[in-house]
């Protein structure tokens, strides 16, 4: 992704939800995207697959996948591209699944839309997919409301894997689930990733989850990436004050008890973004120059990028 810009047009003015975001996902890696509400992380997920509707517009950038720019594709090319190359798992499985169709029918629906398989073969593949995500293939005939929350999310993952795409986007897939179920599902995904070799773009606000699960992590704030680094490096050496503030917002269950402060203030109004560094109203280390000049994302140590004037 190079320099992606997404705007929402509102009567109050354009909201620059994503403003010049660039990153690359390597094969087989889990790329974590962390941020709070209004950071633009979900917008990126939808923009990659061009799922946003007006008044959302993509106003700049390129999204290359295997050499092709997704933003240049027309409707027909997009139809072929979606799900085959990149699939997506949304937050609430209950919203992603059609309540009046069985799970089996929904998987077969997806298969039929993209592959020419005989009915029997499609059934087999559907059963295989359910088994892959840890659901008894007999549940092909179940309706979504007959499954528990965790199983529904697994079913959604099965649908996402139907065409074995090289990249799967997961937008807050476990936020609505209990922590135990969350752990099980993530373990399952990890196993599948090892087995099938796909990459994951994992979007969430839960930074501690990302550190455990991702290869590299990008932190987003107010539509921009403010820090990007390998997971352990980010955890042990967070550079951007926002990242440090986020780290200071997760209590732990082990180790010494320390006082956590979070970050003062509130996320910015995206119609009138702060000038210069967008984090400056909430930053304890702000200097006058920071309010005027926008910091650029640059490499501070191998693989560790940060957008902050302090470095």
């Amino acid at each position: 992704m190079r320099d992606l810009c997404v705007q929402y047009l509102t009567p109050r003015g354009p909201v620059r939800a994503v403003d010049g975001v660039s990153f690359a996902i390597k094969p087989g890696e889990v790329f974590g995207l962390a941020g709070e509400s209004g950071s633009g992380k979900s917008t990126i997920a939808h923009a990659i697959l061009r799922l946003l509707h007006p008044p959302a517009l993509i106003t700049n950038g390129q999204v290359f996948f295997n050499g092709e720019d997704v933003l240049d594709m027309d409707d027909r090319e997009l139809e072929r591209f979606r799900w085959r190359e990149i699939s997506i798992v949304f937050q609430s499985a209950m919203n992603s699944l059609n309540p009046v169709m069985t799970i089996g029918d929904q998987i077969i629906d997806v298969i039929d839309a993209h592959m020419q398989l005989a009915r029997g073969e499609a059934q087999e593949r559907a059963a295989f997919l359910l088994d892959l995500v840890g659901i008894d293939p007999k549940r092909l005939a179940s309706y979504p409301h007959e499954l528990s929350g965790g199983m529904r999310q697994r079913a959604v993952i099965a649908i996402a894997l139907a065409l074995s795409p090289p990249l799967m986007i997961m937008d807050e897939p476990t936020t609505a689930l209990d922590v135990v179920v969350q752990k099980e599902i993530l373990q399952q995904i990890e196993e599948l990733k090892e087995k099938m070799g796909f990459s994951i773009l994992f979007i969430t606000h839960d930074l501690s989850l990302l550190v455990e699960f991702s290869t590299r992590i990008a932190i987003m704030y107010a539509g921009e990436i403010v820090e990007l680094a390998p997971a352990q490096e980010l955890f042990s050496n967070p550079l951007h004050p926002y990242t440090q503030g986020l780290m200071n917002s997760f209590p732990s269950i082990s180790g010494p008890k320390k006082k956590l402060t979070g970050i003062p203030g509130a996320p910015p109004d995206m119609v009138n973004v702060p000038s210069g560094c967008r984090f400056h109203p909430r930053c304890a280390l702000v200097q006058p120059m920071h309010t005027r000049v926008v910091p650029r994302l640059h490499e501070v140590s191998p693989g560790h990028f940060v957008a902050c004037h302090l470095y």
Partner: peptide, 10 residues
Amino acid sequence: DVSIRMGVLN
């Protein structure tokens, strides 16, 4: 939001 939580708990 995550960054706000600690403030409220404190």
